[in-house]
Design a protein around this nucleic acid. Structure first.
Lengths: 151, 151
DNA sequence: GTCCATGCAAATGATTTGCAGTATC
DNA sequence: GATACTGCAAATCATTTGCATGGAC
């Protein structure tokens, strides 16, 4: 479950930054597309529908702020666009990351949950003396429809 | 073990593209830094030491070619630079990927081998009907030295 | 000799920044 | 009312591209 507007306002105040229409609209655009993986330009277009005077620079500055507040995550699918998505399950202390399946054919992105890396992280800790705090996993391949077309 | 210059020349010929000094030097720069994770600019600087007249555009074009020939891999550490590294173990048919530990403190990148994702890929195949062909894993955290400094 | 490859400079495209006006607290 | 935030336009920076020259086969 993603963050509500009210909770967002509280977080902004707690961090000593101002609550502005633009910030709320950017957050809401990201919230409204929970599986969106939106680019900055896409967020800009979405917000502009409701608030035409917003500038692209403000969108970038707001994205930066949301990243610093850990309310959104950056995703790089190596297609030349950086994307952002709302961070989910902020309440739980455990890092229930979700990861991405990326179809090489149609570019579709499917999210999935898995904690299988726990074991790997522990192993890394032991053998490499490296403390893992976070991870990012991308699986490339072919989605069901595209595989059917290829066969 | 990474590719030799002779093997590289053969691959170029097999693919109907010309063997040029520039291409060889770029490949050798990447080979000489097996753990380098070089940026295009860094490759440019390395090659220029031996061959000052090379242009940055040629470096980019060669990187593109090497990627298409699957001789190098692209790595994105989300620090604003795209990096490249020589592909290892090209001879074995199995995908013995290596992954990266990235220190959030000093930025150091440590490579490691692991096939732990085999299990996950199989599960994805079964439950999501998605055929995984490749994967990329990045583990963020703190290396031994930096952890020591923090404590 | 034929083309592909190169070097240079200009173009591109995402992101950033400077600055004067504006809105929040 | 002070100051952080915004919008705009200009700047930046990695990467790409057009084109005339040069090199590989």
């Amino acid at each position: 479950m993603s963050i509500t507007t009210d909770k967002f306002k509280t977080i902004l105040k707690e961090n000593g930054v101002k609550v502005t229409t633009q910030r709320i609209l950017v957050l809401e655009a990201l919230s409204s597309c929970p599986d969106g993986h939106l680019t900055a330009e896409e967020i800009y277009d979405l917000v502009r529908a409701a608030y035409p005077e917003i500038g692209l620079a403000t969108v970038y500055r707001t994205i930066q702020l949301l990243l610093e507040l850990h309310l959104i995550d950056r995703i790089n699918l190596d297609d030349g666009f950086v994307r952002y998505e709302i961070g989910e399950m902020k309440e739980s202390r455990t890092r229930h990351h979700h990861h991405h399946l990326i179809c090489r054919q149609c570019g579709k992105v499917i999210s999935f949950q898995d904690d299988l890396l726990e074991e790997l992280e522990e192993k890394i800790q032991r053998t490499m003396h490296f403390t893992v705090s976070d991870h990012e996993v991308k699986l490339y391949g072919y989605c069901e429809e595209c595989r059917r077309k290829i066969d």
